[in-house]
Amino acid sequence: MTLRTGSAVGESRDPADLPVPVATTPQKKPKSFDGYWPWLFVLPTLLGVLGFYIWPIIQTGYLSFTETGPFGGEEFVGIDNYQTMLADGNVAQALINTLIYTVIVLAGIPIALLMANLVNQPGLRFASFYRVLFFMPYIAMPTAVALVWRMIYNGDFGILNWMLSLVDIDGPYWTSTPGFAIVSVGVVGMWASLGFGIIILGAALKNISPEYYEAAQLDGATKWKQFTSITVPLVTPSLFFVTIISVINGFQLFDLLYAIMGQYNPALVQSQSLVYIFYNQAFIQNDKGYAAAIGMVILVTIGIVTFFQFRMQKKWVNYV
């Protein structure tokens, strides 16, 4: 298809000379004091962030060192809650489960990139229809998604096991067998977040100038070579963004798990996520001090993981 732009051949321009539409070069402005007005405009948001994010984090940090009664009134207990947590096998199991879930969701990113590539094929009919279709699960309520998947996964009457039975496979009880359960939830999480990756990566793909591909083709690069040497490097900033968001969302797994597992599930104890344990301690068992400690661990873990992701980005992210 690039043959149509054959006129470019005679010019034999190096792709690096082309204007790059991906990122506009930032305009250097002289540093100056802009007055107080900008602060006035960000004030509403700033107050919100301080009041509803920063202050609660500080408070939660404080609460994690206390034993809190069901109706308030806390007593300072030092690091007791953290010591309890170290000895609590359920927390360790929950951390492992959360990691498994996050890894599965991350595995969806390459799939999303391939799909985005397919959806962005020039001349593809109904392209926006496909995009909407893939994005739907992401905007659907997790509880609604969970209910549908509960039916699919149903061990006795679900369509998944029915299909497996056609090829003589006796499917397990997907959501109530320890080990299978968290993976089953992970697959739904991956499926539900594909749309997000497709939209973000699709936008990045559209920003890659077609001239790169034309030049590569002239040099004899195969489609696959073009994908790995042009497409992938040029979408790395978006890949990085999607990875960061997926990891953060993965660590916050709660409602999908809660709704898919249901309340009668014998595998629940072995399949909890960190946030699930947090919820259970804070709102079912009324141990808000311990819950705050778990909340702090979630916060710090996400912070550390994200920090290392930012450190690592130099190694693989290309900002053109």
Partner: peptide, 20 residues
Amino acid sequence: MRKITRLAPLALVAALALTS
């Protein structure tokens, strides 16, 4: 998935703030 960890500490704090 995305909201709970933000809202829960908030609920705790709201509870504390109101006790006064």
